[in-house]
Amino acid sequence: MTQLSELFIKTRAQNRAALIGYVPAGFPTKAECIATIKAMVAGGVDAIEVGYPYSDPVMDGPIIQAAAELSLSNGTSAQDVFDTLEAAVSFGVPAVVMTYWNPIERFGVAKFAAEIAKRGGSGVITPDLTVEESATWKSACEQSDINRIYVVAPSTTEVRLPQVVSQCSGFVYAASLMGVTGTRTSVSGNAKSLVERIRTQTDTPVSVGLGVSTKEQASEVAKYADGVIVGSAFIKQLQESSSIQEGLAKVEALAKELSEGVRR
């Protein structure tokens, strides 16, 4: 069992949701990204998603696009992503990598999964990998004993939902809305009904992402989901700060608020 799966056993027992924080490796720099993760964990984030910045992020809104662009201009490589993952794990929380598919294929599918396991990671979220294209990835993850996390959307049909959900382990990533990453003023009403639909198919924990940025939203989502995923809101703290110290303090403060939110 991965650390990620153990986390959800714990949070379910505590009758709360887990808070999952996202940040792309190498943003604003490799070291500052690791410091950001440390601040997130200090503020109460329960698990970390380390983003593999990609040149063509079609699922991402302007905030994460800008962060990825900065990271890539720093020359962030696969090794930097793995190092960051390892650092996150060293702070005592489960960590996964979130990446578009091409970097995995380029690195080598089996090698990528093995490296995740070697660095203590729990799994990988693959937002643009469809289950139809997953044969080699499935065996690689089984071989390395890591979680495979797919994203499902409000538009996912009744027929397709079980096909995708049955492939997920660790958690199912429920996209709260039809759209790209970013902060939103409210969480789409679609999220709750999507989670309910997923629950009829599986006991695997369900985490909701896309558009969650405030304590109120986190506490609303925590009423029905096992995990609350926040990315853009953390990144924005850093983008809007004039120094890294200021940014890290704001990240920790936001994590603290959100972690109160997920305690229902």
Binding site: V58, M59, W101, E132, V151, S155, R160, A175
Partner: peptide, 12 residues
């Protein structure tokens, strides 16, 4: 070929 897209687009 194939499909490497967010699940949100599969239905369309």
């Amino acid at each position: 070929g194939g499909r490497f897209v967010p699940e949100a687009l599969i239905n369309a």
